[in-house]
Design a protein around this nucleic acid. Structure first.
Lengths: 279, 279
DNA sequence: CTAAAACTCTCATGCCGCTTTAGAGTTTTT
DNA sequence: AAAAACTCTAAAGCGGCATGAGAGTTTTAG
């Protein structure tokens, strides 16, 4: 505290930094105390060293790595800082884009959970207006209804990997689904047509992107793929009984997958749906 | 590749994940292979386990920690996910705000470097229009011109710490400066009045925030605080010779500090300036 | 059926920018 | 002179993997 020298603690305090950080910086040679007692090995700093420490903290705040900072300070080359910063700028922009996606995904998920808690009980039939949706889809290569869940899993994987292959933003689907042609549905068959994931409205356009029109849908809720056949049948019966005219393809939509806690089973909350026309 | 079981490599491939990550997940109990050969210790997975792995990757993509994911999967509590996500949402928003600040700082710095490279040589006198600026300032507690650079360093530290104390976004100033009353300047004295850092236009308003009006300034460039006295004198003489009427307080502005590579000295690029009126 | 290729195992180490802890020594204050 | 406050070194820990060594196992090719 005397004359000119600052102990490591004092230096740390006035610079809002921790003592151990200062020691680390000494060790890696970022900033060395101007004097080190040879016997006690105590470090002593000079207040003029704040200039350098400021620079370090400033560059750190710009997201530079300690290694880079060291290089810059050693080389004294402003071109070097500039090239690092230009690169860093790109990085930051990417990070922001990712965070934006993440934020959207988090919000969707929270909503999805809310919906899950308030959703009707299994077997409930509703008639609801569903706004338009955008999907990223692929035709199913085989009718997975004829096989087990394994085939469905495979198709889903392929869909996901196609997203990755095409360098598209990953959706991290909690909202996947499958479609089936209206005709198959009306005949009481189960013939898968397409598998899809829901995407945001601003998802980049491509051949695999389709729009599902808004409209009134007759829906039935269930919680396992295993019951799809039975519930699809009930849905069809309901439409017939009430003379609803099926106006488009059948959709099996995963509303939420957050019941996946069981080790192996995709415990889901599903909504089977067909668009209906009231002439 | 036979019947049902997938080797770790196959599982990794279809899930776009690395083998070592799968091993890690096994170790920490996030997802265990459905069968482990007791002799060879080879891990084998079932494609149905994709459901769980999807959930894991999904939650990871939302920014959750592996520990949190594990808790969620073990508890099966959707409320838990929700509370984690709500917390995470706040985090992400903060991160984005920080990245925005960072991006702005990076851009400012790149500009500053550009300016540095194209700046006039030492001693050049210019008459330039300077747009309005916003500063966060504090009166200097003593006239640091009477003392050495140490006192200036101290004042600067206090200014910085006052930013931190008031929980204001840190500027990480590369643009600090000091002001002096017009009267002192005209008398040829050096009497510090305020010390400041430049802030963005959208910096939160407070008592310490002031606006420096735009206008024509007579400026002189230099690269060391040590020369301030001499160059300030030249500036004054120049104004007198040309009959420029000094219209406001004197400012000593640090344009860039990127010449700080020397261990101790604040090697700067400075611009002394006084606003002038052309009646 | 054998040899080679491809895969998998465990265990250890490294990354980044610190923080934390333990145990010993030094300075400052009372 | 004792007590309090500080500082030292050295090592380990964090998170989420990646990488590598050296040994063993499974699949493929001939």
């Amino acid at each position: 505290m005397k004359n000119e020298l600052l102990s490591i603690g004092e230096m740390a305090k006035i610079n809002n930094i921790s003592v151990s950080t200062l020691r680390l910086y000494d060790e890696i040679g970022l900033i060395k105390p101007c004097y080190t007692d040879k016997e006690s090995r105590y470090r002593y700093y000079n207040i003029r060293q704040n200039a350098r420490l400021d620079m370090i903290q400033y560059m750190k705040a710009l997201g530079m790595e300690l290694k880079e900072i060291k290089e810059v300070l050693e080389s004294g080359d402003t071109k070097l800082i500039e090239s690092i910063l230009i690169h860093r700028k790109k990085q930051v922009k990417e990070q922001m884009a990712n965070l934006n996606l993440q934020l959207a995904a988090i919000s969707r998920t929270i909503e999805s959970l809310e919906r899950y808690r308030k959703s009707p009980s299994i077997g409930t039939i509703t008639i609801e207006y569903i706004p338009h949706r955008k999907i990223y889809s692929m035709p199913t290569s085989i009718n997975f209804y004829d096989y087990g869940i394994e085939v469905y899993e495979n198709e889903l994987k392929e869909l996901k990997n196609s997203l990755i292959k095409h360098n598209l933003p990953q959706i991290y689907y909690c909202n996947a689904g499958t479609t089936m042609k209206k005709e198959s549905f009306l005949e009481g068959k189960l013939e898968s047509d397409e598998i899809f994931v829901l995407v945001d409205d601003d998802f980049p356009q491509s051949d695999s992107i389709k729009r599902i029109e808004s409209g009134m849908y007759v829906c039935i809720y269930l919680d396992s793929f295993d019951d799809e056949k039975e519930y699809a049948k009930r849905l069809l019966e309901y439409c017939r009984e009430n003379n609803y005219k099926v106006a488009g393809d059948y959709i099996c939509e995963v509303l939420t997958e957050f019941s996946v806690f069981d080790d192996e089973k995709r415990g889901m909350f599903l909504r089977l749906q067909v668009p209906v026309a009231f002439r």
